[in-house]
Write a protein that binds this DNA or RNA. Structure first.
Lengths: 250, 250
DNA sequence: CGTGCCAGGTGCCCT
DNA sequence: AGGGCACTTGGCACG
């Protein structure tokens, strides 16, 4: 099922990866250098890393710490393997995005291939879209009498999350943030509003920033610019019928 | 050096990880479910995945495709291993960020530990800061007679990349983007400008958006709002003395 | 600690 | 293919 080498020679590595490439996920751990040229330029001097080569052509280089790979290539990358002067070489190139990565292995400690049979779909709730869903279903969480007119309304300055009409018939632009917003969210809202007024001859329009928590600084900024804010923590439903707030920890 | 098990029993897995935990990076490949509760809620049904547990306490779950892990826990996560009813269980919890991940292994195909000796520093050029460096050194790439006054100037609406004075003594706000900017970058610039005028009694001030490429739509938006744009592709120098433009592919 | 912002961001969905 | 935007964004620098 799974195939493994411990401390293989460069030739053994070459034979192995040539046989397994794009058939299985390949794992190579060893002492190497990594050079990248494309969207930026980087060089990683000699050291021991773990490399994954997936069947979709993406390459991921991990160091001993951190969630993020130190180097990588996106899915669709073309790989060429070679042995030169006892070094095991991996040339990665993606022409469409014009980028390239080269790894030179001085030594390979672990070499393995895996066939991961994995077709299940991950369920995921608690995203901003779930939050918007809830506001659409129950607009009163923002304020009584609010009527949602449109979702994801396109404007020249970007798209706004919700466009609504309040109980007095005044249009309302609503920007929803799942995470505590910064000044940037206010700028975004302001741009929408200015744009709306521009296009509608200085019509009266309200702007609301909605998030589970709105930092004090942002509140001040909103108030200064004549906008409003709402704090709203959504409640999520699960397949088992349970409900849970996003800020509950279990 | 590196330690490996093929198709170990749950008890063997438990003994192995208990011994290696935080001593070496641990790799577990096998059939499992993954549940996450924290910043969101997710469930991944039974399937074969590759899991890395690093010494800094981060956990990374990879599927057969894609650069991104399907599940993960950040550095600093506390792990508990257990065997229950032939299942190998991994409980991951990070109290500071109130999140939790649970993996249940029905079967483990590959189990390994790695001691990655890796101390070298990665060099990386081509970032936005490198681009700003170049403008500071040679302001004429933006326009003749421009004098850079400040870098990373703080404003209430965020920080601006460069603050300068043009040949006529008019203040200039410069926003630098490494990647093609969107409408958001214009909003950001606009917020700075509005803020500046507010604080300086409607003083005359110019706004420039500088990027290697400025999309047509963004140009229009900038022009509408009375701002300017510059296209500027930086040239990077390497330790070997070579120079290269970021848009050159080799 | 939080706050702000870049990233070789990645991935998804839209036109 | 390109634009726009959320992300369990991650990571770092700074107050």
């Amino acid at each position: 099922m799974d195939r493994i080498f411990l401390a293989p020679s460069s030739d053994e590595v070459f034979d192995f990866v040539s046989r397994e490439h794009r058939q299985r996920m390949i794992i190579v751990a060893g002492m190497c250098t990594v050079e990248y040229r494309g969207r930026a330029f980087s060089f990683l001097p000699l050291g021991e890393r773990l490399v994954m080569v997936k069947q979709d052509g993406c390459v991921i280089v991990h160091r001993s710490r951190g969630r993020e790979p130190v180097n990588w290539m996106p899915p669709g990358t073309r790989l060429d393997y070679a042995v030169d002067d006892q070094l095991f070489l991996v040339h990665c190139e993606k022409r469409s995005s014009r980028e390239k990565m080269v790894m030179e292995f001085v030594e390979v400690n672990l070499l393995a291939s895996l066939l991961l049979n994995d077709s299940g779909q991950q369920s995921l709730v608690g995203l901003e879209s779930d939050m918007v869903d809830q506001i659409v279903e129950q607009p009163h969480v923002l304020e009584d009498g609010l009527r949602i007119v449109r979702r994801e309304k396109q404007t020249i300055s970007g798209s706004i999350d919700l466009f609504a009409i309040d109980r007095d018939g005044v249009p309302v632009v609503v920007e929803v943030k799942r995470n505590p917003p910064g000044a940037q969210a206010v700028s975004q809202l302001e741009a929408y509003i200015l744009d709306f007024r521009e296009k509608n001859r200085r019509a009266v329009v309200r702007g609301i920033l909605c998030a589970p928590r709105v930092p004090r600084m942002v509140r001040t900024l909103l108030t200064d610019k004549g906008f409003e804010w709402r704090e709203f923590t959504p409640i999520f439903e699960f397949e088992d019928g349970g409900q849970r707030r996003l800020d509950e920890f279990i």
